[in-house]
Computed example of a mutant assay.
Amino acid sequence: MGIINFQGKRDKAASQPVEQILVSDYMTTKLITFKPEQSVEEVIETLIKNRISGGPVVNEKNELIGIISEGDCIKHISESKYYNMPMDNSHTVEKNMISQVETIDKNMNIFDAANKFVSSKRRRFPIVDNGKLIGQISQKDVLKAALKMKGNRWK
């Protein structure tokens, strides 16, 4: 018995290539970054002032060395209170940041990036080129790309 195909006749338009939308098209390049020697208190003030939930940590060569988030700051506050320690400038970003940072390639398709967000449960990914931080893509950036594509075929 032969194979029966239930797809029916396809339109010619469906086989035309869809324009690739890359992470680099939607990434943010004007980033608020932190230095490893900054105090956690400075980070908290910056996060609140700029209404952001975290940011990349870079060294003097603009190389990505970590990420610090609201959660990292809250953990620090919680531990300081638990151990009855004052929050002072000796508590640095370097001691509280996450140094194992997952990045996204600037040439990744935006919808592959969406899948990466879903599987990792992260809110943002830094983008690095030759070791240097060049941008960041957030879940909101992916949503903007999806809205722009509304009505077009996604690939």
Rank of each mutant, 00 (worst) to 15 (best):
M1R: 14
M1S: 13
G2W: 12
G2A: 14
I3K: 15
I4E: 11
N5V: 08
N5Q: 06
F6I: 11
Q7D: 12
Q7P: 04
K9T: 03
K9L: 11
D11W: 14
D11K: 11
K12L: 15
A14I: 12
A14N: 13
S15I: 11
Q16C: 08
V18W: 05
V18A: 13
E19D: 13
Q20S: 15
Q20P: 15
I21L: 13
L22S: 12
V23C: 12
V23A: 12
S24T: 11
S24R: 11
S24V: 12
M27H: 10
T28A: 10
T29V: 05
K30N: 14
T33D: 09
F34E: 01
F34S: 05
K35W: 08
V43W: 00
I44Q: 08
E45S: 15
T46V: 04
T46G: 04
T46E: 05
L47G: 14
K49R: 10
K49D: 04
N50L: 05
R51L: 09
I52V: 03
S53W: 02
S53M: 05
G54C: 01
G55W: 00
P56R: 00
V57C: 03
V57K: 00
V58L: 08
E60P: 08
K61L: 04
K61I: 00
N62W: 04
N62F: 01
E63D: 08
L64R: 07
L64K: 04
L64H: 12
I65H: 04
I65M: 01
I65L: 03
G66D: 01
I68W: 01
I68Y: 03
I68C: 06
G71T: 11
G71P: 01
C73M: 03
C73G: 09
I74N: 08
K75M: 03
K75Q: 15
I77V: 03
K81W: 08
K81N: 08
K81Q: 15
Y82I: 07
Y82H: 15
N84I: 07
M85C: 14
M87P: 12
M87N: 14
D88K: 09
N89C: 10
S90R: 06
T92Q: 07
V93F: 01
M97F: 00
M97G: 02
V101T: 04
V101N: 05
E102L: 09
I104Y: 03
D105T: 05
N107V: 00
M108R: 09
N109Q: 07
N109T: 04
I110L: 00
D112A: 12
D112F: 08
A114M: 07
F117Y: 08
F117T: 04
S120E: 01
S120M: 07
R124N: 06
F125N: 01
P126T: 00
I127L: 05
N130G: 10
N130W: 00
N130A: 09
G131Q: 02
K132Q: 12
L133M: 01
L133H: 05
I134G: 02
I134Y: 03
G135Q: 03
G135N: 03
I137F: 12
Q139V: 11
K140W: 13
L143G: 12
K144T: 15
K144E: 15
A145F: 02
A146E: 08
L147E: 13
K148G: 15
K148I: 02
M149L: 13
M149C: 14
K150E: 13
G151S: 06
